[in-house]
């Protein structure tokens, strides 16, 4: 049976004035295996009814801890960001399917290119860790609005080559992640991406030479596939997918967003 748990907030770090990293501890971590899955966090306030889906940034099963990184977007994330070390958070998860790491392209000696946009970059970190453990080369291309919003550069650099772009040119390549992909002629056996929808559209337009997997987000209620709030249509066949249940990761071109 799946579980929910009151997990302990054991560490908290502000990455920017709007983006916070939290480390949570509890037995639920033992169920967290696949990168790209998410947890559904209860906001500590009765007026804020719905849980907030937040992707898992890093998992440490030996220490029974995992990390989430989120940006303050509204009332719920603001209240969550105010929790302090020692507080508990009611966690449901892990939920969703996450990034595929057992596909034929994932094998020792192959190269994976991980493309992140803004607050979409955190879940790529656990993915990169696991791909590296499988002996893959990992290249990270991370795009941000400006230098001030740039997060996790050091963490990703420790795992592999990390290229940064900013929209205002204050750091790295002036422009978008797709500009780096075009200019640097990066060859990879598999691509993974998480970020805003326009970035996915730009990636699709590049017709990359290998499979591309992207992680989507949508307003959710239950987070477990029962309410049909976060549904999208299949692109080339009948039927639909639930982003919370069959997703949040789909192969590029699989669904209509």
């Amino acid at each position: 049976m799946k579980k929910v748990e009151d997990m302990h907030l054991v560490q908290k770090k502000w990455l920017t004035p709007q983006i916070v990293q939290m480390t949570l501890k509890g037995g639920l971590v033992l169920q967290m295996n696949r990168p790209g899955q998410f947890v559904h966090l209860r906001v500590p306030d009765g007026s804020t009814l719905l849980r907030r889906p937040i992707s898992i940034h890093a998992i440490d099963q030996e220490e029974l801890i995992f990390d989430v990184i989120f940006r303050i977007e509204g009332k719920g994330t603001k209240l969550l960001s105010k929790l302090t070390v020692g507080d508990t958070i009611h966690v449901m998860g892990p939920l969703g399917n996450g990034f595929p790491v057992s596909v034929p392209q994932v094998q020792s000696g192959n190269t994976a290119c991980l493309i992140g946009g803004g607050i979409g970059t955190p879940p790529l970190y656990e993915l990169s860790k696991q791909l590296k453990q499988k002996g893959m080369q990992v290249i990270h291309i991370l795009g941000f609005g400006s230098e001030k919003e740039c997060i996790l550069e050091d963490a990703f650099t420790k795992l592999g080559q990390t290229l940064i772009s900013t929209v205002d040119g204050s750091k790295g390549t002036h422009g978008f992640v797709t500009d780096i992909l075009k200019d640097k002629d990066i060859q990879a056996d598999i691509y993974y991406s998480c970020g805003p929808v326009p970035m996915f559209s730009a990636l699709e337009a590049l017709n990359l030479p290998a499979p591309v997997y992207v992680s989507y987000e949508e307003r959710m209620a239950c987070g477990m596939g029962a309410c049909y709030a976060c549904v999208c249509k299949n692109k080339n066949q009948e039927g639909y997918k639930r982003i919370c249940k069959e997703g949040p990761v789909f192969q590029a071109g699989e669904v209509e967003i």
Binding site: L49, L50, G76, R219, M220, Y228, A229, V231, Y240
Partner: peptide, 20 residues
């Protein structure tokens, strides 16, 4: 039936709106 386009839910004070 496929239902409505998304977004299909929005939170409100002490409640939620849905249009599945």
């Amino acid at each position: 039936r496929f239902g409505n386009p998304t977004p299909r839910v929005a939170e409100t004070y002490g409640g939620m709106l849905n249009a599945i």
